[in-house]
Computed example of a mutant assay.
Amino acid sequence: MSKIRIELERVLAEKGVSKTQLCYACRLQRTQLNNYCKNKVVRVDLHTLAKICDCLECGIEDILKLEADEE
């Protein structure tokens, strides 16, 4: 079964934005952001993803990746 992978940490590094800066700009709790960065989110909040994309000036396709099943 394919799965969706969150690559927020990579995008932050590419854009040169710290987690602290993103938390402040998007009004996110650090724990919430860390869960997105570590791909530990169980229920994705679309409003939060939209805020992150706006702040990082990127598309959702830059953050979410579909990993094909390796069978």
Rank of each mutant, 00 (worst) to 15 (best):
K40S: 08
Y36E: 11
L33A: 08
Y36R: 04
A25K: 01
I52S: 09
R43E: 15
R27G: 09
Q21A: 07
V44Q: 09
C37Y: 11
L33Y: 06
C26L: 00
I52T: 10
H47Q: 15
Q29L: 04
K19D: 01
R43Y: 14
L46I: 15
H47V: 15
T20N: 03
K51Q: 12
Q32E: 13
L49Y: 02
I52P: 07
D54W: 08
R43I: 15
C23D: 00
K51W: 07
T48V: 15
D54G: 09
Y36I: 11
C23G: 02
V42N: 11
N35K: 04
Y24G: 03
C23A: 02
L46T: 12
R27N: 15
A25S: 01
Y24D: 06
L22I: 02
N34W: 07
T31I: 07
N35Q: 05
Q21G: 00
N39E: 10
Q21T: 02
N39V: 09
Y36S: 09
Y36V: 10
H47S: 13
R30A: 14
N39T: 06
K19R: 00
R30L: 13
N35A: 02
N34P: 05
V42R: 11
C26G: 01
T31C: 07
T20I: 03
K51G: 08
H47C: 13
Q32N: 11
L22N: 03
N34F: 07
K19V: 01
T31M: 05
L22E: 01
D45H: 05
Y24W: 01
H47R: 12
T48L: 12
N35G: 05
A25W: 00
K38V: 09
T31Y: 02
T31P: 00
Q21H: 04
Y24R: 05
C26N: 00
I52H: 08
N35L: 04
D45M: 04
N39R: 07
A25M: 03
Q29Y: 03
R30G: 11
C53F: 10
T48I: 15
C37E: 10
Y24L: 04
A50V: 14
V44F: 08
Y24A: 04
T20D: 03
V44G: 05
R43W: 10
K19I: 00
L33F: 09
D45P: 05
L33V: 10
L33S: 07
R43H: 14
R27P: 01
V41W: 07
C26T: 00
C37P: 13
V42S: 09
N35P: 01
L28G: 02
K51F: 11
Q21K: 04
K40N: 10
V41N: 08
Q32T: 15
C53I: 12
T20A: 06
H47K: 14
L33C: 10
R43K: 15
N35F: 02
N34I: 09
C37K: 07
L46Y: 12
K19L: 02
V42F: 08
H47M: 14
C26S: 00
D45S: 11
Y24T: 05
V42T: 13
Y36N: 06
Q29H: 04
L49I: 13
L22V: 04
V41G: 10
Q21S: 01
K19W: 02
C26P: 00
Y24S: 06
T31H: 04
K40H: 07
K40C: 08
K19G: 00
R27Y: 03
K38W: 06
L28A: 05
T48K: 12
V44T: 14
L28R: 01
N34M: 12
